[in-house]
Structure formats: structure tokens, C-alpha cells
């Protein structure tokens, strides 16, 4: 038998990370459909997909390291780029939506940004 217990541990962690990542990404997609307005949908899209995609990438990194002996720098840089770009895109989408007049869904009209914009004019 060639598999040592370290390899078993690596396999288990790869499987767990892949399952966790797919579950989180699936939940993010469900959240995008279920949430009421664009801002709450952005919450689901940024947070959950960041963690989901990065744990899948970490699983791929461990797999390549254990099976093929490759230290894949591309995957690590991919995690970094996702962590940097997802909040930026969410910020830009949210700002663009607000500037083009999409009102956030609130019960008591708590929208400090709109008040500030009105005060400016």
C-alpha cells in the first residue's frame, strides 16, 4: 500500500475544501436569486463567492502540491486577485446603481447617502 496517512490527510482536506467551496458558491447563487433588491444581492455576490472560489483554489493548490509536486503560484495570486477585485466591483456596481436612481429597499427610508446628495444640491 502506497498511501501513507499524510496522503490520506491531504486527500481528506482536498475533498472537504472542494465540498465547502462548492456549497458556499451554490449558496451565493441562491442568495442572488432570493434577496429582495440589488444592494442585498451584492452582499451575497461579493462575500460568499470570494470565500467559495478561494477555498476551491486552495484545494487545487494542495492537490497539485501533493500529487504533482508543483508549487503553483498562479493559484495563490488568483486568490489575492479575487479578494482585491470582488469588493471593488461591488462598490462600483452599488455606486452606479445608486447614481442611476435605484432606491434601496427600506422600511423607514434610512438612506444617508441620498440625504447627503439632496443637501448638496
Amino acid at each position: 500500500m502506497t498511501g501513507t496517512w499524510i496522503e490520506l490527510l491531504a486527500n481528506i482536506s482536498i475533498i472537504l475544501l472542494l465540498l465547502f467551496g462548492s456549497f458556499i458558491t451554490l449558496s451565493a447563487s441562491i442568495g442572488i436569486i432570493r434577496f429582495p433588491d440589488i444592494y442585498t444581492r451584492l452582499h451575497a455576490a461579493t462575500k460568499a463567492s470570494t470565500l467559495g472560489v478561494s477555498s476551491i483554489l486552495i484545494a487545487a493548490f494542495i492537490f497539485l502540491y501533493v500529487k504533482e509536486d508543483i508549487v503553483s503560484g498562479k493559484l495563490l495570486i488568483g486568490i489575492l486577485f479575487i479578494m482585491v477585485t470582488a469588493p471593488v466591483s461591488a462598490h462600483m456596481i452599488g455606486r452606479a446603481a445608486h447614481n442611476s436612481g435605484v432606491k434601496p429597499l427600506t422600511k423607514n427610508r434610512t438612506d444617508a447617502y441620498e440625504e447627503a446628495m439632496q443637501k448638496q444640491q
Binding site: I24, A48, T106, Y113
Partner: peptide, 16 residues
């Protein structure tokens, strides 16, 4: 976020 996604009727009140 996961908790909110799988709550049947989330009692949330969003705002800025």
C-alpha cells in the same frame, strides 16, 4: 450570509 440565504422569511431591514 449563509444563515440569511437559508432562512425561509428573513426579517431584515436594509438601509444605508
Amino acid at each position: 450570509i449563509l444563515k440569511l440565504v437559508y432562512t425561509p422569511k428573513p426579517e431584515i431591514e436594509p438601509g444605508i
